[in-house]
Amino acid sequence: MALSPQQPDRRAELADFLRTRRARLAPRDVGLPEGSRRRLAGLRREEVALLAGVGITWYTWLEQGRDVQASSETLENLAHALRLDGKEREYLFLLADRPLPDKRPSHGKVNSELQRMVEHLEPNPAYILGPRWDILAWNRAASLVFTDFGQLPEERRNLLWWYFTDPVARQRFSVWENYARCWLGQFRISWGRYAGEPDFVELVEDLKHHSSEFRSWWPMHEIYGRYQGRKEIEHPLVGRLVLENAMFRVEETPGVSLALYVPLPEEETAAKLQRLLESA
């Protein structure tokens, strides 16, 4: 929903509000490296765009007061990226002419419609991630290809925790370190949105304690784009699987995303997935 042409004052106020909130933050406040010498105080526009998961051009237009659309999820991500408190967040939604949603999505549940959708994506592996990368839902294909997520303790049913601490993950992914650093760099953006929240802090501290790689790489502040593309998996029953991974945001639930893996025309991956499902 765009602000109407009859609301230029509201758009100008929103633009000015975003600029002032950006100017008061330093990179260290949001878990980003300081980088090169800065002429002006505050975050750069591209840093806010990165933390909020939006395009730099779109965010620039928003700060320029142009008549652009901003969904509730995007506003929620901007609120987290700019470290807005409760009243500032409410004001942001008011200026954008959007109803104020609940402050945070549930970390532990998805609705029945999402669960059914994931199940019907078979034979393609798929799962739903929460804001902290907790695995909220998955289909049978995902359990057969990766691991039986249902057998993991609920408090440890988290993609990063599984990938960095479970030996099965190291066995499944042929280039474990490459994927680990990529996923960690993407999680860093989620951390930037929610840094300081107790459940995020607890996860990071636990991973530092249990994974030497995580402990070594976390202070580097590496940032990556969305973790999608080609994935090669060594499966103990059917051999090598070559899949393409893509991530999709769940629009009505801020911070929640769908991960989908589809077979590439190599290594007879599609036929192998079908055999796995039929033999389970």
Rank of each mutant, 00 (worst) to 15 (best):
M1Y: 02
M1P: 14
L3M: 09
S4A: 00
D9R: 13
R10P: 05
R11F: 05
R11S: 04
R11H: 10
E13Q: 15
R24T: 07
L25Y: 02
L25A: 07
P27G: 01
P33S: 02
P33Q: 00
E34M: 07
G35S: 01
G35N: 11
S36V: 11
G42L: 05
L43E: 07
V48Y: 03
L50R: 01
L50I: 10
L51F: 07
A52Q: 04
G53A: 14
T57E: 08
W61D: 03
W61M: 09
L62H: 08
Q64D: 06
Q69R: 15
A70W: 08
A70T: 08
A70Y: 00
E73F: 05
T74G: 13
L75H: 04
E76H: 15
N77M: 09
L78P: 12
H80Y: 13
H80A: 12
L82S: 07
L82D: 02
L82I: 07
G86Q: 11
A96F: 01
R98H: 06
L100M: 08
P101Y: 12
D102Y: 01
D102M: 11
P105D: 05
V110K: 04
E113K: 14
Q115D: 15
R116G: 13
V118K: 09
E119R: 14
P125A: 00
A126Q: 07
A126L: 00
L129C: 02
W133S: 14
I135V: 15
R140P: 07
S143Q: 11
V145F: 04
F146N: 11
F146Q: 06
T147N: 04
D148A: 02
L152P: 07
L152C: 00
P153W: 03
P153F: 01
E154F: 06
R156C: 05
L160M: 06
W162M: 00
W162C: 01
D166E: 15
V168G: 02
Q171H: 10
W176K: 04
W176N: 04
N178I: 10
A180E: 00
C182M: 15
W183C: 14
W183I: 12
W183V: 13
G185W: 08
S190T: 11
E197P: 10
L203N: 10
D206C: 14
S211Q: 02
S212T: 14
R215T: 08
S216T: 12
W217C: 05
W217R: 03
W218Q: 01
M220S: 15
M220P: 00
I223L: 09
Y224H: 12
Y224M: 06
Y224K: 01
G225F: 07
K231C: 09
E234C: 13
H235S: 05
P236Y: 15
G239F: 11
R240H: 04
L241C: 05
N245E: 10
R249E: 15
E251G: 11
T253K: 01
P254H: 05
P254A: 06
G255S: 08
A259D: 12
L260C: 13
V262C: 03
V262S: 11
P265L: 13
Q274C: 11
L277V: 14
L277P: 03
L277F: 04
E278C: 12
S279T: 15
